[in-house]
C-alpha cells in the first residue's frame, strides 16, 4: 500500500444564487475534480447548494489566535464607526 495520502481540501458552498460561498467542511481527494465530485456527494445531498468551491487546505493562510487581541481589539474603542454613536433628536426622520 502506498504511504502517499490524498491532500485535504476545504469546501465552500453557495446555498443559492445571490448569497456568498460559505465554508462547510473539508475532505480528501486526489485532485480538484475529484474534490468537487466528493463535495457534491458529501455536502449537498439535500439541495444545500448551487455552486461549490474547493481549495487545497495548504493554500489557506490564517491569523494566529495568539494575535487575536492586537488584531481585532482596536476596533472596540472606535464606536464612532457605528451609527448609534451619534446623538440626534428623536424628531429627526429617515436617517
Amino acid at each position: 500500500m502506498s504511504n502517499q495520502s490524498e491532500p485535504l481540501w476545504e469546501v465552500f458552498i453557495r446555498s443559492k444564487q445571490g448569497l456568498d460561498h460559505k465554508h462547510v467542511g473539508s475532505l480528501h481527494a486526489a485532485d480538484a475534480k475529484m474534490a468537487i465530485e466528493n463535495a457534491r456527494d458529501v455536502y449537498t445531498r439535500r439541495m444545500e447548494g448551487v455552486s461549490i468551491w474547493v481549495v487545497e487546505s495548504k493554500y489557506i493562510h490564517a491569523t494566529n489566535p495568539d494575535e487575536t487581541e492586537s488584531l481585532f481589539d482596536p476596533a472596540n474603542d472606535k464606536v464612532y464607526r457605528h451609527p448609534t454613536f451619534y446623538d440626534l433628536p428623536d424628531e429627526l426622520k429617515y436617517m
Binding site: M1, S2, Q4, E6, A29, A30, D31, M34
Partner: peptide, 19 residues
Amino acid sequence: HEEGAWVREAALAYAEKKK
C-alpha cells in the same frame, strides 16, 4: 480497504501525471 487500495493509488497517480 485493501480491495480499494488500487483505486486510491490510481487516483493519486493520475493527479500526479496531470500536474
